[in-house]
């Protein structure tokens, strides 16, 4: 049997037998080389309680070349693209070793959620949010976990959300008062959220960015 297939089959079987780690690997279609990884968000982090899905593609030269992984579940994290789910992690690139397995790589992803690395970001806007105001970042990450990964959510954020739908302000990690303030000047709410997020209008930045600067951006 083809060595790659034997190895992938064994990895899937190993993962099935190991209930303790909470990590699951499932087939997406008929091919054993296109898989879906599932792991729980790590406890004690904004991702706790969520279930995260990862798209896994096993390349031709696996395990001598790294697997291709990206998040299916939307994640608010400096090293994960908030738009595409692309992941910035050394072992998925040059630090890959053939002894690493799908399971160990998924565990690494789990630990990446525990320890973000904002100095080497995949998503620059999220990384900026993380460095300026960690508390606010965590609220947003918790909210994303709640919306996309089925997490329980936090009290503080759930009160900010306006009932049933997704709260766009909380999604962008902004303060409702700030958005209301600029919306009152006659700008569209969506545009205000967009500009404030881009300018990283959070924490101590709020005092540093003048209102004129925001209005200037809004008028562009």
């Amino acid at each position: 049997m083809d060595a790659r297939l034997r190895r992938v089959n064994k990895e899937i079987a190993d993962c099935k037998n190991d209930k303790a780690s909470g990590i699951k690997i499932e087939l997406i279609d008929e091919s054993p080389f296109h898989l879906k990884g599932i792991f729980p968000g790590p406890e004690g982090t904004p991702y706790a309680g969520g279930t995260f899905l990862v798209d896994i593609i096993i390349p031709e030269s696996y395990p001598f070349q790294p697997v291709k992984m990206k998040f299916i579940t939307k994640v608010y994290h400096p090293n994960v693209s908030s738009a595409s789910g692309a992941i910035c992690l050394d072992i998925l690139k040059d630090a890959w070793s053939p002894v690493l397995t799908l399971k160990s790589t998924l565990i690494s992803l789990q630990s990446l959620l525990c320890s973000p690395e904002p100095n080497d970001p995949q998503d620059a806007e999220v990384a900026k949010h993380f460095t300026t105001s960690k508390g606010s970042f965590e609220d947003t990450a918790t909210y994303w976990t709640q919306i996309y990964a089925g997490g329980p959510g936090k009290k503080g954020v759930s009160t900010a959300s306006s009932g049933d739908g997704k709260d766009e302000v909380a999604m962008a990690g902004l303060e409702k008062a700030h958005v209301d303030q600029f919306e009152a000047l006659g700008f569209q709410r969506g545009k205000v959220i967009d500009v404030l997020r881009r300018l990283n209008y959070r924490g101590k930045n709020v005092t540093q960015i003048s209102e004129d600067r925001v209005v200037e951006e809004l008028l562009k």
Partner: peptide
Amino acid sequence: SPIRTHIGDR
């Protein structure tokens, strides 16, 4: 340990 930290630490 199979748990990896990020580039910087390593």
